[in-house]
Nucleic acid binder design. Structure first.
Lengths: 208, 208
DNA sequence: GTGATAAGTGATCACCGATCAATTGGCAGC
DNA sequence: GCTGCCAATTGATCGGTGATCACTTATCAC
């Protein structure tokens, strides 16, 4: 028993590195070829292990995507926290927060796909699904808190904070997801479109 | 040659019916179990034919989803046309047009998924992809035309029509897709949220 | 009837996600 | 040194998938 502690610890340490290597390889392949086109054998080969070895670290292929999803949510949350200043909120900070969200989607389109645009097979373990939902709710919670500061400062049109934050989130997600999913659509100039979109949202949410 | 005309006609007629039966069966299964969980054998069994017979009507499984996607776009376009009145535009018509879009997504979540939220494998025949894009551009074109009427009537804040319509579309898509993709999220009351969302969009787009 | 044409089928291919018995490699106890 | 154990890893394999093929069946002009 006692002797196994060190070996287990070492194995876990080694295992955790391996686990992250697998995740890195999977995300790279997802980015290169698309999520559906990557097989477990591809991931294993890219990670330098055999295909069955994957299942020592992840129960299913879906769980790999699910963990990447969770990491994406955590990344988004960190960006939100980093972008949050503790000055009194103003138009500039509103625009910045919206920017952070859109930029996250455009800079990490595959993570964004995994996090928000992937059809879930419903076969994931309940515990894994709960962790993803928790990470997502937490990331959105940061966004919600920022919106709440604008509401508290009296900068917004009168409405429930939850309605404002969820509506705003949906609008930001809409632009990010469409730009990612439909790159072939005849979009207006991307930068101009994003700026206009965020300005229009500000006009709809903030007091004039 | 001449003799084959009738047989071809009859075969095509029969074939077209079968083709639509397959599409109906596929859409039903997609709705019941999710798009990824439906196999060609499932579709064939539901349509009352053998699995290889599918490939007489569709080149790949993806093409079945692609044609459903095209039909969804056509349906959306028809709804847009039906909702378009030729009275001078006002706030009520703005709200109605937005409603049509959201309702389309919520009433036909699976068609909406296929049309807007499905990861394309990139393996579809180029001609099929072009038809889908064309149908999508056409559906969006109807929406764009409606927006243009508001711009022409001087009801909107000054901005390029294309920017306004694409931004609006993104915001509507964002809410529809999130409500479809994340039913487990702690949303505000759906009806209240939709109303607030559309009102906020109106406030952001229309002149005060 | 008869031959040609098209539709539909069973059998099959390569590949997928996932599982399992068997093998390997490293470390404790002697 | 050697032995025995345990976790990590593997080749082989299972059922199922999308797609293809040779073969059979049904239809229709003549």
């Amino acid at each position: 028993m006692a002797m196994t502690i060190r070996s287990v610890r070492k194995a876990k340490g080694h295992g955790a590195e391996r686990r992250q290597e697998i995740l890195d390889a999977a995300l790279m392949l997802f980015a290169q070829r698309g999520i559906l086109a990557v097989s477990t054998r591809d991931i294993a080969a890219a990670a330098g292990i055999s295909q069955p070895a994957l299942y020592a670290y992840f129960r299913t292929r879906e769980e790999i995507a699910a963990v990447l999803c969770e990491q994406a949510f955590i990344d988004l949350r960190m960006r939100m926290v980093a972008a949050a200043d503790h000055q009194p909120p103003d138009l500039a900070s509103f625009l910045r927060i919206c920017r952070v969200y859109i930029d996250f989607g455009l800079e990490q389109p595959d993570a964004y796909r995994v996090a928000f645009m992937l059809e879930k097979g419903g076969a994931e373990p309940e515990e894994t699904k709960a962790r993803i939902t928790a990470a997502g709710v937490e990331a959105f919670g940061c966004f919600h808190d920022q919106v709440a500061r604008f509401v508290a400062a009296g900068l917004t049109r009168p409405a429930e904070t939850t309605l404002i934050s969820q509506s705003l989130w949906a609008s930001l997600h809409g632009l990010a997801s469409l730009l990612i999913a439909r790159p072939g659509f005849p979009w207006a100039d991307r930068e101009t479109l994003i700026s206009h979109h965020i300005m229009a949202l500000a006009a709809g949410v903030l007091r004039r």
